[in-house]
Design a protein around this nucleic acid. Sequence first.
RNA 1: UCCCCGGUAGCUCAAUCGGCAGAGCGGGUGGCUGUUAACCACUAGGUUCGAGGUUCAAGUCCUCGCCGGGGAGCCA
Length: 460
Amino acid sequence: MIRRTTVREALESSPLGSPVTIPGWVRSNRASSGVAFLAVNDGSTFGNLQVVLDRSLFDEATIASASVGTCVEVAGTLVESSGAGQSREVKASGLRILGPCDQSYPLQPKRHGMEFLRTIPHLRPRTNTFSAVFRMRHRLAMSIHEFFDSRGFFYVHPPLVTSSDCEGAGETFQVTTLPLDGVPLKDGEVDYSRDFFRRRAYLTVSAQLEAEPLALALGGVYTFGPIFRAEPSDTRVHAAEFWMIEPEAAFMDLDDDIALIEAFVKHMAGTVRDRCGEEIEFLTKFVEPGLPGRYASLLDSGFARVTYTEAARILRDAGTGRAAPLEWGQKPSSEQERFLAEEVFARPVFVTDYPASFKPFYMRLNDDGRTVACTDLLAPGVGEIVGGSQREERRDVLESRASQQGLDPAIYGWYFDLRRWGSAPHSGFGLGFERMLMYLSGMKNIRDVLPFPRTFGSMA
RNA sequence: UCCCCGGUAGCUCAAUCGGCAGAGCGGGUGGCUGUUAACCACUAGGUUCGAGGUUCAAGUCCUCGCCGGGGAGCCA
């Protein structure tokens, strides 16, 4: 075991004058006749550690061998830097090559295109941009657990293999051990009784249906795990495998749900802003200049709230404006959603009470009989980031809406049972983890916030 | 799935109306007394995505294919 000092410790906390041993990867190697400088990064923090090599102590070949990408272990003393770019540096007494790196190494100390970096997912975490994104990803994930834990929500783990396709949430990947070149048939149909689970099985497209029974026992719960969707959506915001947060809580109505969403989004943004300052600074400079404005819009004011019906009126009255009018009963287009968030309200806005006609059966029917108690949170620059609703707790209403939408009661029997015995008002929402990370990092393609993205037609 | 755009050196990109295929970075060699994606000089490096076609002449125009990107729909 190497007893090491991290770059983060060396830059922030280790006492000056102390001897240190620091392993890391060379980001740049600048040699002049009397002295050579290595920029060493170990991923523990955004910044590099400057290592100073006196050329009277190190020969030409040793210095040259520490080329960009090489894994080195530097021994030396932590000292105050006389240069302008950093306050501390290491005066080296030893340099060991742990992992040599020849000139075929694809990463250079220069800007690369995202498309090229996607072809080397195993190396791109060594770039400034991707190491920043993945540290931010960690911080965001941790902030989710902090938030719900502090509010008494329990972290639950619904199955990834399910029997239902969660109505309308998307195309499923089927899970089977049946041989594809000789599927067993019975009466001309596939004989699923001979499949692994003795029935059809899918990868989950949403954990919500399984979260509800847990919420109706534990009170407040949340899930945070992978979701799989087989939709052939070839866009910058869709992945076949992504992560979703789905809180669900008993005794919570739509107003409570909306308050929870707002507090949650603010907590995530606030934590990342507080803890990822260097990452945000870098990403603002090289990826998305509008990043500070995004944090401000999330953190510095309350979110707006309108009903779908009011939004349709606004879009109609805006008339000659950028977005087309919305006829009541139609789904808003992404252009209309962006118009509301960016121009009408200029901050995140909750749109509530959509028509029941294009929403799933489990959303609670309002007293008007034509809208449901749901909300989408629309953010400037991206559109929808959260979708939630109060769930239909009345057994008769739920069953009639399910049958209207043509669902098989046999599959959803247990879901109806929740309303049969001890039903309770409850609500929840879903938030796409990568979409949130894209918003907070400024990355423009979902493939660039996932370490190894799986998207339609591509598994690099 | 539909629509649009693109593919030139290892990488990032130029190349006028169809007329000798270039630069920066990276690599190699040499230089420089503290550099900040160091700098200076020299140098090597090309099946212009592939297959056809038009033309005296194609990176450039046409057809097909492959790959990549963006948008729409759908969603998270």
